[in-house]
Design a protein around this nucleic acid. Structure first.
Lengths: 333, 333
DNA sequence: ACCGGAACTGGAAGCGCTCTCACACCCGGC
DNA sequence: GCCGGGTGTGAGAGCGCTTCCAGTTCCGGT
């Protein structure tokens, strides 16, 4: 049966080779391998045997070219600085997506969009070697660039849109829970050290904080920072100078919170005695720091998996799903 | 000039359209766009204008199909558990690669290889939509699966090979520096809490530690763990039970080190008074912990960039490059 | 014996692109 | 006036695959 031509080591095994080896046509071989279209049991056996014998691996590029779409999920992360990519939230998210996709035989691409350029999004959306796109930290401008026709193939993690499904942490709720918690503990002069203003999730958090403080007749004290510990240190010094009587700080994330704690303690402040500090994300070190960090934990894996399956299968329950965050009370607040 | 046919919104703009709009053939348009092959100034202008007017974006799948290789760099991370993907070293590495590639217009794929299956590597190597592959945590078995013909397109981060270029941290040197440092501080009963045994970098670190201790006639105390803080906590308890007089611990990474510190302090040990602890990686929180963590910092960005450019350009200076790590002495040792 | 239809198969088109090749053109030199 | 060499161009092949469509076989029903 095995009429295999002696093939050189440089020759790439194509469907043609499989078909010849199995004694069927390319069309039949293709039907067997893709599993769609009718095929007799005998043809199936022979093709599968040939695939094994030859070590055939379908060419993804050719499949994408003819099939209209490929087998990769693109995770596009927005942000001017590379640190956006090295963020613990993003890292966990990407890792979860990679795991989910690995079980489905789908590749994952990580794309950095430094300039939040709508054109880049259009480019991503038109790349047929990709099957779907997940947008992280997308802004309104970026989302508007998504072609309406592609709605089903693209999802946003963290910004509302009528055409694209949204999956995100309920950061407004998380922020509110944190403010209430600090208020219950007797804190009244609560400052916020937020992340970059352009980030949609930051905007929501700040807005919640602002409206709650306003509603309670409490002072609104906002310092912009980035999402790093060094940023937190700098912000702590700024905030202290400006409002020395601050008795609580809500940091944009845990790294910032830890930076703030380090800076405050460096100035002789007692945490949480003098100033309570809390963050977001519940990174592994939140429980290891001194004092342990009060923070808010997000169901990142659930969000990532939901968004991934939704966008790959092209169906989702509601246009926007917000996952509840959970406040973790530890020593720092 | 603009003889554009009224195109529907679903129609995808192809090279054909650009050529028609510019009044040249597909071949000429292709030459202009790829920039290789002769072309007159006039043809160039007209094609470029047409590209702009039509919003043409070359189809990556078609290019990969005909060109023999695509425009993506695959970063394949080995390891049974998803946590391998969520490791700070890997995260920094991947982020650096993504940044380097973004400036070159090359996509980055993140692939998880849970079973360290050589077949998966072969599959990766044959994927022509990829231009090159970077293997993280590759084992010998995985590297042996790399087809010799693909040598130029694949690089390993962390394991020696005669056919594939290697870029890695000089972990042996880093471990040695750490052992000497502890020895200089008067520590003699030095334990090591290493990462998973299958990891090549772990093997090198353990081997260095073993041979140094042996050479100095000092006890060899090894506990295997994973790379998490919880693993470190468990390992600390094990090590303490087995060798209660241990006066120093070298942890596999900073997360483990912080876990160990937490566990030891929980048992009333003083760090570094009773036990010195140090880690590897110099994560952002190493400087924020109490006590601050003595650790070893790796030039991850340099390694990532070097490996990326080497494998994309297909040329590298030497078969194996080991980048020196730097010991950062802080309070914990 | 005949026929309609279901089940399967192979030829061939074509996805969008690159690249080889043959051709057309223009120049200066004999 | 003719030829060699350089320069620019377009027709066309073909990358590996899926899928349409027409053809073949084989079945049960009449």
């Amino acid at each position: 049966m095995t009429t295999s031509t002696p093939h050189t080591s440089t020759h790439r095994v194509t469907l043609e080779d499989v078909a010849r080896e199995a004694g069927v046509s390319r069309a039949t071989a293709s039907r067997v391998i893709t599993g769609c279209g009718p095929s007799s049991a005998e043809a199936r056996d022979r093709v599968i045997a040939a695939v094994k014998a030859l070590g055939y691996i379908p060419d993804a590029a050719a499949r994408a070219l003819v099939g209209g779409h490929g087998f990769r999920l693109v995770v596009a992360v927005t942000g001017h600085t590379p640190s956006t990519l090295d963020d613990p939230y993003v890292d966990r998210f990407v890792a979860s997506v990679a795991v989910t996709c690995a079980t489905r035989g789908i590749g994952v691409s990580l794309q950095w969009l430094p300039y939040r350029d709508p054109d880049q999004v259009r480019r991503l959306a038109k790349d047929r070697s990709a099957r779907a796109v997940l947008l992280l930290n997308a802004t309104d401008a970026v989302l508007r660039a998504v072609p309406a026709a592609l709605t089903g193939r693209i999802a946003s993690i963290g910004l509302g849109s009528t055409t694209v499904p949204v999956f995100d942490v309920d950061l407004a709720g998380a922020t509110a829970a944190m403010v209430y918690h600090l208020y219950d503990k007797g804190r009244r002069r609560i400052a916020m050290v937020s992340g970059p203003a352009w980030m949609p999730c930051v905007a929501r958090s700040v807005e919640t904080y602002r409206s709650l403080m306003q509603a309670g007749g409490l002072p609104f004290r906002l310092v912009r920072s980035n999402f790093t510990a060094d940023g937190g240190k700098a912000a702590a010094r700024t905030a202290l100078c400006r409002w020395p009587d601050t008795d609580a700080v809500i940091a944009g994330n845990d790294a910032v919170a830890l930076g703030i704690i380090a800076a405050l303690r460096g100035q002789g402040r007692n945490i949480p005695g003098d100033v309570a500090v809390c963050g977001f994300d519940d990174i592994p070190f939140a429980v290891l720091s001194t004092p342990t960090l009060t923070t808010s934990t997000h169901p990142v894996e659930r969000i990532a998996t939901a968004a991934t399956t939704a966008v790959l299968d092209g169906s989702w329950a509601s246009p926007a799903t917000y996952y509840p965050s959970q406040l973790i009370c530890r020593e720092s607040a």
